[in-house]
Amino acid sequence: MDKLQHKRAQELKTVTEMIGIYCRDIHKTDGINLCSECQELLDYVEKRVAACPRMEEKTFCSACNTHCFAPNRRERIRMIMRYSGPKMIFHSPILALKHKLTEWFAI
């Protein structure tokens, strides 16, 4: 797996975990099998990450100049990340640490 593919996979893994946390807590699912609304959003995110023209140079979508998400979906994912972000350290500490290190050091 090359660096770009690894970066895409890591980003998807993080977003999948965050959506799972949100869906489990808010929509009362098991966090693995998402509700239809959260699954639809995850499918959308997967398509957008796969088609991202700036994946090599950006750290995260929030720091990118090109917004690939439609405004309503961008706001939805922001809401999910605000909710799930603080909980990541308890649910997936290694993933949370990798995410923070990438943010701080742009690795």
Rank of each mutant, 00 (worst) to 15 (best):
A70P: 08
L12R: 13
K98S: 10
L34W: 12
E17K: 15
F69D: 05
D30S: 07
K28N: 08
T14K: 12
E11D: 09
L34R: 08
L34G: 03
C38V: 07
M55F: 00
L97R: 12
M55Q: 11
K100I: 11
L4H: 06
E46F: 03
R74Q: 03
R74A: 14
E40T: 11
V49C: 13
I77M: 11
T66D: 06
I21R: 01
K3W: 11
F60R: 05
Y22D: 00
F90I: 07
R76E: 13
K47R: 10
C23S: 01
C68W: 05
L101V: 12
V15M: 15
A70N: 04
L95T: 15
M55C: 00
V49W: 05
E11M: 12
T14E: 14
D30G: 01
D25W: 06
L34H: 04
L97V: 01
H6D: 13
I26P: 01
V15S: 00
E103T: 09
M1S: 09
T102H: 15
F60W: 07
R73M: 07
T16Q: 14
A70K: 12
C68P: 02
A96C: 02
V49Q: 09
E46H: 12
F60L: 04
E56C: 03
A50T: 06
S84D: 01
L41T: 01
F105A: 12
A63F: 09
